[in-house]
């Protein structure tokens, strides 16, 4: 996916050699100063505001939606109504209110994206931390596996699984997106852990006889948190688009569940008759992804001690 390119690009733009350039002093620096930097970043705050609003709408969806998103008042006479005050985004092929479906669909789209990224970040951090901390032959083997997984285009892998196990439940979709999304994170974490292992604090702690668990949780993982957070935020935008793409190919969220992807797809079946359906869903999607990217951008700069010039 394109947003995948962007994800790599944004990560790489501060770390062309695969993540090593995330300055560790930046990661361990007080969060407060980072938040302060973030608060001064206008575009990041705009993105954050949009995301907060979307999250609120998603949480309160049943109360915010003007109609029951399932209701089909008249599937012949009231289908494909153009936008009016009563139906700002018109109605779909089953005379359902498109605005209500987009509002309720935001729940699926956002929660699938969020949960799958949590899965990806967790698995990726765990895997990368083990590889980086243990090192040696195990590290080599584990990273070869990640290289192999990364060399299969994710979309191809997703389509393979979604076709072979067609009709996935939502939980399955979350797992699928999560378990195909951790490869990059694990590589990033491994690089960070590898360099953190040589850190003076860690050497000191080891000399004082601290256990591996303690060293990992107290000294190494805190340095990993902020880069992973940036990567995860970017991945959310990526996953929203992927979910829509899979649904576009008929493999994502299955009806009667609504997601932005499925509303978009419903509209595409007759763009000539009702272009506004796909446009509305597409707009919701693009705005969200844009907001996510703005926030990720801001986060990266706030958490990164190395200042990019001229910003």
């Amino acid at each position: 996916m394109t947003s995948g390119v962007r994800q790599d690009v944004l990560l790489a733009s501060s770390a062309p050699d695969g993540g090593g350039a995330f300055d560790r002093t930046g990661a361990t620096s007080p969060w407060r100063s980072a938040l302060g930097t973030l608060a001064r970043d206008r575009s990041a705050m705009t993105g954050l505001a949009i995301l907060a609003a979307l999250a609120l709408i998603a949480l309160a969806a049943p109360y915010v939606a003007p109609y029951d998103p399932r209701a089909q008042p008249d599937i012949v006479a009231l289908k494909y109504l153009p936008p009016t005050l009563a139906h700002p985004f018109g109605t779909d092929h089953l005379s359902r209110d498109v605005l209500s479906r987009i509002i309720v669909g935001s729940r699926v789209s956002l929660s699938v994206a969020f949960l799958s990224v949590v899965v990806a970040a967790t698995v990726g951090t765990g895997y990368g931390a083990i590889a980086g901390y243990v090192g040696g032959k195990l590290d080599g083997l584990m990273m070869r596996v990640v290289d192999a997984l990364l060399s299969i285009p994710r979309v191809l892998l997703l389509i393979a699984v979604a076709t072979l196990w067609n009709g996935l439940e939502l939980a399955g979709l979350v797992l699928l997106l999560g378990l195909t999304g951790w490869f990059g994170v694990s590589r990033l974490v491994r690089t960070l852990v590898l360099s953190a292992r040589e850190d003076e604090f860690v050497t000191a702690a080891r000399a004082l006889g601290a256990t591996h668990t303690r060293i990992l949780t107290h000294h190494i993982l805190p340095q990993v948190v902020s880069p992973v957070l940036v990567a995860a935020t970017l991945a959310i935008g990526n996953v929203i688009v992927i979910e829509a793409g899979l649904t576009f190919l008929g493999m994502g969220v299955q009806p009667p569940n609504a997601s932005w992807g499925s509303v978009f797809y419903d509209g595409m079946r007759d763009v000539g008759a009702a272009w506004w359906i796909s446009i509305s869903a597409g707009a919701a999607l693009v705005i969200t992804v844009l907001a996510v990217n703005l926030v990720a951008d801001g986060l990266r700069e706030a958490l990164n001690a190395r200042q990019l010039p001229a910003r």
């Binding site: 996916m1 394109t2 995948g4 390119v5 790599d8 690009v9 790489a12 733009s13 062309p16 990364l150 060399s151 299969i152 285009p153 994710r154 979309v155 191809l156 389509i159 793409g245 576009f248 190919l249």
Partner: peptide, 20 residues
Amino acid sequence: VPTIVLLGLSLPTLLGGAVF
């Protein structure tokens, strides 16, 4: 230089995009 490094990075995603 860093842009060319990007070339290698962007291939898997480009191939993924090509699918659609």
